[in-house]
Design a protein around this nucleic acid. Sequence first.
DNA 1: AATATTGTTCAGCA
DNA 2: GTGCTGAACAATAT
Length: 265
Amino acid sequence: MPELPDVEVFRRYLDSTGLHKKIENVDVKDADLLGEVSSLKLKRQLNGSSFENTDRHGKYLFARSDNDSILVLHFGMTGFLKYFKNGESEPEHTRLLIDFENGYSLAYDCQRKLGLIELVDDTTGFIEKQELGPDFMDDNFKVSDFTELIQGRRGSVKSALMNQEVMAGIGNVYSDEILFHAGIHPETACSNLSQDQVKELYRIGKEVLEKAISSQVEPEKFPTDFLITHREPDTECPQCGGTIKKETISGRSSYFCDKHQEQIK
DNA sequence: AATATTGTTCAGCA
DNA sequence: GTGCTGAACAATAT
């Protein structure tokens, strides 16, 4: 379930593996994942070029090549990247395979094909077209921006946090995590949040995602009082001795503590 | 065999 | 038109 932290980790991975290397072959193994770009165009644009830098907005990863084409990847629910040496086995559900001149390859694997492979020449245009809100971890995304977006919404906080058109990057798992640390019930209406709670949500949100990224989203590296490793109904809350409950909220299975996330409806 | 999983999209409702 | 909810979809594991 790649959300902002996961995609940021993929971005750094790509930075440390696949940059400045000449691409000598591109294999689109599943055209289902392609957006508007054709398989032929993708190959023509990337072949012979090299990736020079990367970027990320919400759950989208961008890799810019030296001919100014930009490869866009979205990881859906099951996507990941793997850089590996020739001869080693490629991941089982590789949908896009890029071979470099140095004998290594980069695989984009996406078992359940909910991801996206696209080629654009302008990230800003792409972000606008997708109608994505500001990236939650962008330094220019301030508490005042967050407050403005949350205020005046009719639905629950959880659906606001998860709505990519409101702000980009937070999904089911991290919306639960943020609300857990903020002590706010996921079903709380935005209109019922106090000014202080909204500010607190922003601060905690930044903190939670930052910690997830620095833990490289590896479960064993997360602090033990995080909900993420305790997503099991009717188990003990790692913070207060309450009970972790599971309920469908905003159409998603949500986990929360029945004791320290007070229920306001 | 039916169910659960999640991000996105879209039909439909207030 | 807007904001929101809920269903559908993909592919697989249990």
